[in-house]
Design a protein around this nucleic acid. Structure first.
Lengths: 203, 203
DNA sequence: ACCTCACATGTACTTTGGGACATGTACCTT
DNA sequence: AAGGTACATGTCCCAAAGTACATGTGAGGT
C-alpha cells in the first residue's frame, strides 16, 4: 500500500511537475523528456535520465500519466491524464513558489577578498564573458521566436517568456561581473569611492 | 582509513568551502556559522545546522580547521588552519564554477500557458512585488555599506560585491515579472494552431 | 525560586541528486 | 555483412539535502 505520491501536503518536488508540464504539450517518451530537460530546462532545472524514468514510473502509478504507445526499440511514450493536468494546474496556482536561487557564482563572491588581485580580475573577466555569451544565445533564441520561427502555439509563447528571463538574468550577471572589475581592491583608501549607480540593468 | 575528504578530484561541495570561507574571517562556532549562512548566504546557498555540524567534524578530521576554544554552554569555536586557507584559495582559483541557476520561478514560466489569464496575472504581480522587495532590501544593505556602516575590512568589500549581485539579479527578475504581464495571452491567431496534435488543453 | 527563551550541539531518518553500470535495438554507412 | 552511432530504458549505489527528533545550558525576567 502506501499511496502517498506527494507526501502529506504540498512539497517542492519540481521535477515531477516539470515532467507533467512537458507532457501537457503532448505525448513523449522518457528519452524525449530527458532531451528536452537537457535542452530547455537544463540551465534552470537540471535532471538526468535515471531520475526521469523513475519519476515517470511513479507518476504512472499515481495515475497522472499513462502509456500512450510503444515504439521502435522499446520506446514507451506517455500521455498525461486528466488527473495529471489537474495536478500541474493545482501546482501552478496553489503551491507556493520556492524563491531560493542557489548560484555558486554569487556564493564565491563573498570570498573574493581571499583571492589575489590578478586571479580575481581574470576570474571576473571569464565570468563576464560566459554570462555575456549565454545572454546573447538567449537573445538569439528570443529573436527567432519573435520572427515566428517556432509558430504561435501557446506553449511557445510561454517559452518566449522563459527565454526573456534568461536574457535578463544572464545580462544582469554579465553586467555585475563587469562592474565588479571596477571595484578597487582592498586598499584603505581616502574617502572611499565604491558608490556605484546602484544598478541599472537596462536591457 | 579512507582519507578522502573530497572524493577523487574536485567536486561541487560548496558547503565545505562556504564554511571555510566564513572561518577565514575569524573563529566561529557551528551555531554562529549556521546563523551567518542563514542571514548572508541563505538566499544563494541554503544550509541547515545539522549539515553544518557534520561538515565541521569532517573538516576538522581533514585538518582544515581545528577547535579554537570552548565556550559557555558546550560552545565549540573553530579556527581555520593553513591547510584550510590553502584549500579555499585552491577552490577559488582552480576549481571550475558551476553555473547552473535552478530557479523555480523560471521553471514555472515554461508552463504559464496552462494557467488561466487571471491567475497568471495575479501570480506575476505577486512575483514582481516579491522580487522588488528583495531588490530594495539589498539596495538598502548596499547603501549602508557604502555609507561605511560596516567598516572597510576586505571582507565587507566582498560582501558589497555579493550584495550588488543580489540587487541586480532581483531587479532583473522584478522587471521580468512586470514585462511578462504585458505579454498578451494566447490568442488563437490567424495562422491556426494545428501543430500540436495532442493538447485539448486550451484554456 | 521558577520559568522561559535564546544559545548550542548533535543524531536519526527520509528524500533527492548524480554518477556509474548494464542492456539491448534500429538505422546508416562502408 | 560488419561496425559504429544514436536511440531507448532501466538498476544500483553513494553523496548531499532536508526534516524531525533529542538534549542540555545559561541568562534574564517575575
Amino acid at each position: 500500500m502506501d499511496p502517498r505520491i506527494s507526501r502529506e501536503d504540498g512539497d517542492g518536488v519540481s521535477l515531477r511537475h516539470g515532467l507533467l508540464g512537458l507532457l501537457a504539450e503532448g505525448p513523449a517518451s522518457g528519452y524525449d523528456l530527458a532531451r528536452r530537460f537537457e535542452d530547455h530546462l537544463g540551465p534552470v532545472w537540471p535532471a538526468q535520465h535515471p531520475k526521469i524514468y523513475a519519476e515517470l514510473s511513479r507518476l504512472a502509478d499515481a495515475g497522472m500519466i499513462e502509456v500512450d504507445s510503444h515504439g521502435p526499440r522499446g520506446r514507451k511514450a506517455y500521455r498525461i491524464t486528466d488527473a495529471g493536468r489537474a495536478e500541474i494546474r493545482r501546482w501552478l496556482t496553489e503551491e507556493e513558489v520556492d524563491h531560493t536561487l542557489r548560484t555558486e557564482s554569487v556564493l564565491r563572491s563573498f570570498f573574493f577578498w581571499l583571492m589575489e588581485t590578478d586571479d580575481l580580475q581574470a576570474h571576473l573577466r571569464r565570468e563576464q564573458e560566459f554570462f555575456s555569451q549565454v545572454a546573447d544565445m538567449a537573445r538569439g533564441y528570443a529573436a527567432a521566436k519573435d520572427r515566428g520561427d517556432f509558430g504561435t502555439a501557446p506553449q511557445t509563447r510561454s517559452m518566449r517568456v522563459a527565454v526573456e528571463a534568461a536574457v535578463r538574468i544572464y545580462q544582469a550577471l554579465a553586467d555585475w561581473a563587469e562592474w565588479a572589475q571596477t571595484v578597487p581592491p582592498a586598499v584603505p583608501a581616502a574617502e572611499d569611492d565604491t558608490h556605484p549607480p546602484a544598478a541599472a540593468n537596462e536591457v
